[in-house]
Design a binder for these strands. Structure first.
Lengths: 254, 254
DNA sequence: TGTAGAAAGTGGCATAGACCACTTCTCAGG
DNA sequence: CCTGAGAAGTGGTCTATGCCACTTTCTACA
C-alpha cells in the first residue's frame, strides 16, 4: 500500500504538485501532453483529472484547457442580530422571480410556520444569479398576517427585511438545516447543472422577537460553486452568522 | 438538450429506474450484462455507475457485484438542553485513544477557549469506530480548570459530560461550524479512506451556563458514510439538535 | 465426509484509437 | 484596416479489448 503502484495515483500526485506550484487560474498541461510526460493513456489522465475537478481543485473548460481552481471567496450572508443582508459574493447578484402567488399554506409549510393549512401565505419562487449565471433557487413563504399589503416588488427588492421592521416585526434568525443533496430534474434545468449534481439544501425558519414564525425559506444552492460554513456563537453577544464561501465565475484567470 | 443523446445519460437513467424499483441492498445486473442490454461499452457503463456510487445511490463490492445503497439511518447526536449524548448510529461505537496529554493551549485553541496560550488544557485525540470500521477523528480540548482531576478514563467513557455536571458545570452546546472538506494524508490513513476523500469537518465549542468555554472539539467525519443535518430550533422550548445521517457497514444486504 | 483447489463471475485498471464540439489564433481576402 | 474562413489545439464522448484481483461456488480428491 505504501508505494504508488497505480498509474492513476501517480498521475493524481503529479497533478497535485502542479496545483501547489502554480497560482490559481494557471493552466496545466493538456491531457495529451500529460499522457506523453507520464507515459499513460488518456483515459487514465482524464480519470485523475476528473477526481481533482470533483474535489474542486481543478477547473475544466471545453475548448480552452484545464486550470488550477481559483481561491474561494468568503462572503457573509447573515450578520449581527436582528439585521439580515442577502447573500452577496464577488459578483453582481440578481433575482429572477419564477413564481409568485398568495396561496394557502398547505400541510408542510403550515406546520413549519405554525399556521393552519388553510391560512394564506405569500409564496415566491426565485432564481438567484451571479453575473448572469444561475446560482441558487429560493422558495419563500411568508404568512399573510405578517405583511398584509406585501407586493411583488417588496419581496423582490433587498429591502424586504427593512419593510418587515417597519411593520413592527423584529426578526431573529435561526438556520434550521443545512445538508448536502443532489439536484433533481427541474432544479438541474433551472440551475443549468446536470441532474444529480451536488447541491446544498437549506431550510431557514425566521422567527421574530415574540416567537412568531415570520418566514420559511427553502433553498437549493449549486454545490459546485458554494461551500457552507454555519456558525452559531453563544456567549457575551448572541450572534448567528452563516458564511457562504463561493467560487464565482467560470473565468479561471484573475 | 431535451433529448438524451448521450449514452452515458441513457445508462444513468436506466440505473436510476433500477434503483427506484429495487429494495435497498438488491443487486443490479453485472456491468458486462448492462453493456449488452443497453448496447454500450463497459467504460461507458462504468462511468455511469461511478457517478451514482459517488452520489451514494449505489455501492460497489469487488468480487461480489453492485448493489442499491441501503437507506440511511438517522441518529441523534445532541438532544435536549443541558444534556449531551455521544453520537451513536446503527452499530457498535467504540473509541480508540490516539493521543492524550496535558499541554499548553497554544494560540489557536487558546483563542477559541478564551485562554492564554500558556494555559494548561487536557488534549485528547481519538478515533471513533462503528462495528470496527473507522468513522471519525475527534480532537478534544478541555481547559484544565474545568476538571482538574480529569483522568484518561473520564474522557474515554461516555460519562464525560455527567462528570462535568458533578463539578457544577452545566453545559450548553453550540455547534459552531460544519463544512465539507477532503482528507489529508494522515487523516486518510487513520480513517482508512483515500487521500482527498470527501469528509465533513466540524468544530464545536461548548459553553456552560456562565458563558465559559468548557470544551473545544474538532472532528473529521468520513464523507462517504455521513450526512450532516444541523438543526437549531428557537421557540417555546429552546433546543439544539444535530442529526447525523449515517450509512453504516459495507454489507449492502439487510 | 471433509477439505482443498479449480472455475466462473464479478468489479478494477489500463490501453489505443476514433470522432465530435468548442475555443483561439492566424492569415488571406476584401 | 477590418473581417471572415480555416487550421490547430483543447476537452468530451465512446468503442473494443485485455488482463488483474477478489469472491463465491462447485467439484474432485483424500
Amino acid at each position: 500500500m505504501g508505494e504508488a503502484i497505480l498509474k492513476r495515483e501517480r498521475v493524481r500526485d503529479h497533478l497535485l504538485e502542479l496545483i501547489e506550484t502554480h497560482p490559481a487560474g494557471a493552466p496545466i498541461p493538456a491531457e495529451r501532453v500529460l499522457c506523453q510526460q507520464l507515459s499513460v493513456s488518456r483515459p487514465t489522465v482524464r480519470s485523475a483529472v476528473e477526481e481533482l475537478v470533483n474535489t474542486g481543485l481543478l477547473v475544466r473548460q471545453h475548448g480552452r484547457g484545464t486550470f488550477v481552481a481559483r481561491a474561494k471567496i468568503t462572503q457573509e450572508m447573515v450578520s449581527g442580530t436582528g439585521s439580515m443582508s442577502l447573500p452577496q459574493a464577488g459578483g453582481t447578484w440578481e433575482s429572477r422571480v419564477l413564481e409568485h402567488a398568495r396561496i394557502p399554506a398547505g400541510a408542510r409549510v403550515g406546520r413549519r410556520l405554525r399556521l393552519s393549512p388553510a391560512a394564506e401565505i405569500h409564496y415566491i419562487a426565485r432564481l438567484r444569479l451571479v453575473d448572469g449565471e444561475p446560482m441558487a433557487l429560493e422558495y419563500l413563504h411568508v404568512p399573510a398576517f405578517v405583511a398584509p399589503g406585501l407586493t411583488l416588488h417588496d419581496m423582490e427588492s433587498g429591502d424586504f427585511y427593512e419593510r418587515l421592521r417597519e411593520h413592527g416585526v423584529h426578526v431573529l434568525e435561526a438556520v434550521q438545516s443545512i445538508e448536502p443533496t443532489v439536484t433533481n430534474e427541474s432544479e438541474a434545468a433551472l440551475l443549468s447543472v446536470p441532474v444529480l449534481a451536488p447541491a446544498l439544501l437549506f431550510e431557514r425558519l425566521t422567527t421574530d422577537a415574540e416567537g412568531r414564525q415570520v418566514e420559511y425559506v427553502h433553498s437549493i444552492y449549486r454545490g459546485d460553486r458554494y461551500r457552507i460554513v454555519s456558525r452559531l456563537t453563544l456567549g457575551d453577544s448572541p450572534r448567528n452568522t452563516v458564511d457562504v464561501q463561493a467560487r464565482v465565475g467560470n473565468d479561471p484567470l484573475a
